[in-house]
Structure formats: structure tokens, C-alpha cells
Simulated scan of single mutants.
Amino acid sequence: MIEASTTQVWIIILAMAAGTFLIRFAFLGFVGDRPLPGWALRLLRYTPVAVLPAVVAPMLLGAKAETDPLRLFCAAVTIIIGVWTRNVLWAILTGLGLFFGLGAVLG
């Protein structure tokens, strides 16, 4: 295992913060005051749809592939609510409420 001093850790944190800022500023700072072309706006519409499954999938399947029936059930209900209402917020709130509610009841 590699040991790092406190100074090295802070240098890494500050470098990553600067890199993240520059990546975001490149898009928002340089292009933020001009309208984007239509093809870029069409592509950006799919960003939440692509990011949400990438965030949720590891929580469902996990790196160790331990599937939990409660998580799978709540994910299925969330998908059904999302398709039925066509509202991402209602789907997320329903899934979270169901997960924490059933988790508290079932233990």
C-alpha cells in the first residue's frame, strides 16, 4: 500500500478541484453566453437518462454481485412509476420512499 503525506493528499485534492473547475468552465464559461446549436441541445437532452442508470446500477447489482430482493423490488416499482407517470421526480421519490419505508419495516 502506498503511503502519502498530508501535503501530498492536499496537493492531489487541489489539483483535482482545479481540473474539475476547468472542465466545467470550458463549457459554461466559454459557451455559456451563446446559444448552442440544435444538434448539441438534442444530445444534451439524453444526459440525465444516461447518468441516472449509471449511478443506480452499482447500487442494485453491486461490485460483489450481491442482489438484494428489496432493492430489486423497489427498482422495479420505480421503473413502473416512471413509465406510468412519465415523471422522473415522482419515480425517484416513490422508489426512495418505498426503499426506506420497507427497509424500516422489514429490518
Rank of each mutant, 00 (worst) to 15 (best):
E3Y: 02
S5E: 11
T6L: 11
Q8G: 08
Q8F: 04
V9W: 01
I11T: 12
L14D: 04
A15C: 13
A15K: 08
A17I: 08
G19T: 03
T20W: 01
T20F: 03
F21D: 06
L22A: 11
L22G: 00
I23N: 07
I23S: 08
I23K: 04
R24I: 10
L28K: 14
F30E: 14
F30V: 15
G32T: 13
P35S: 14
P35I: 03
L36T: 05
P37W: 00
G38K: 09
G38Q: 13
G38T: 14
W39C: 02
A40C: 05
L43R: 13
L43Q: 11
L44R: 06
R45I: 02
T47G: 06
P48Y: 06
P48H: 07
V49H: 13
V49K: 03
A50D: 05
V51D: 08
L52T: 06
L52Y: 09
L52H: 00
P53L: 05
A54M: 14
A57F: 11
P58L: 11
L61P: 01
L61T: 13
L61N: 02
L61Y: 12
A63Q: 09
K64M: 09
K64C: 02
K64P: 00
A65Y: 09
T67Y: 12
D68E: 14
D68H: 10
L70K: 09
R71G: 06
R71V: 09
L72S: 10
L72N: 08
A75W: 02
V77G: 03
T78A: 13
I79G: 10
I80R: 02
I81E: 01
G82Q: 04
V83Y: 06
R86Q: 15
N87H: 10
N87W: 01
V88H: 00
V88M: 12
W90L: 11
L93G: 07
L93S: 07
T94N: 03
L96M: 12
L96Y: 04
F100H: 08
F100W: 13
G101L: 04
L102G: 07
G103V: 08
G103R: 08
L106M: 15
L106Y: 09
